[in-house]
């Protein structure tokens, strides 16, 4: 007996291990439900929690039982069946009316009164609580959805801004190019000015030297010539001049 049990339990364990692996595989394959072509959504739709319960008549009898008899017996059929059944059971004393029956009737009346009297208020209170609980439970999810939507919008905005950033970078690059160009031209200008200044200086210097040399030369020559002129020569030249003037005067 025990050995049989052990054998069974071991096979059970093996099977369990097998099924758990197959179940995990199944779960893994079932998760992408949209891509699964085997999934039969028509005959086996996903079970959803209904909002309202199935309709009942007289507080507890399912509506479907009445619908079942409707095509055969019409509207009154089920009521006739029920009343007839009760009448039969009571009249043949199959259903024995004993003292519990009366207490049952009274309890049913009290229950009906209580349900009619307090039912709506209790239902309203519970619905309120339910709405509150639902809101609480869904708030995390809704907040997450809201936050994620905002995040998507923000990242889209920043992507757009990054696109603008490239324009801005281009503009900055152009600006810097212009600045570089301006600096380059300014430097060219300053080089030109400096070179011109130096050349002008050289020119001026050489001019000055030349002028100085010339003047010095002239002064020197004049000085030497003056020194070379003797008083006799001066007198002779003066006499010659007078004679020249006389000759001119005689001709005039």
């Amino acid at each position: 007996m025990l050995s049989r049990l052990a054998a069974r339990s071991s096979s059970v364990a093996v099977r369990l291990a097998h099924t758990s692996s197959s179940a995990s595989q199944a779960a893994a394959s079932a998760t992408p439900a949209t891509t699964n072509e085997e999934r039969n959504e028509v005959d086996f739709p996903r079970t959803k929690r209904p909002i309202h319960p199935a309709p009942v008549r007289m507080g507890f009898i399912p509506e479907t039982w009445f619908e079942l008899l409707y095509s055969k017996t019409g509207v009154t059929g089920p009521y006739v069946l029920g009343t007839g059944l009760i009448t039969y059971l009571v009249s043949k004393e199959i259903y024995v009316i004993e003292h519990e029956f009366y207490s049952g009737v009274i309890m049913a009346m009290m229950a009906a009164y209580g349900i009619k009297k307090f039912g709506p208020t209790v239902a309203a209170t519970l619905d309120d609580q339910l709405a509150k609980e639902k809101e609480e439970m869904l708030s995390g999810r809704n907040n997450t959805i809201k936050a994620l939507t905002e995040g998507i919008a923000a990242s889209e905005l920043s992507a757009e801004q990054a696109k603008g950033q490239s324009l801005l970078f281009q503009a900055k690059r152009d600006n810097i190019g212009l600045q570089l160009e301006a600096a380059y031209r300014q430097r060219l200008q300053s080089v030109y000015a400096e070179v011109k200044k130096r050349l002008d200086y050289q020119l001026e210097k050489s001019n000055v030297e030349k002028r100085f040399e010339q003047r010095h030369m002239v002064d020197w020559i004049v000085q030497n010539v003056r020194q070379s002129i003797t008083p006799a020569q001066e007198a002779a030249s003066l006499k010659q001049c007078i004679t020249d003037l006389k000759a001119l005067a005689a001709r005039a």
């Binding site: 929690r49 209904p50 909002i51 309202h52 319960p53 507890f60």
Partner: peptide, 22 residues
Amino acid sequence: QKYLLPEKMGVAPFIQIAVGSM
């Protein structure tokens, strides 16, 4: 799923249980 689990379940399932146990 029909009577007890819907969001706005009524008093019907309790009456059903009471009648059934009776």
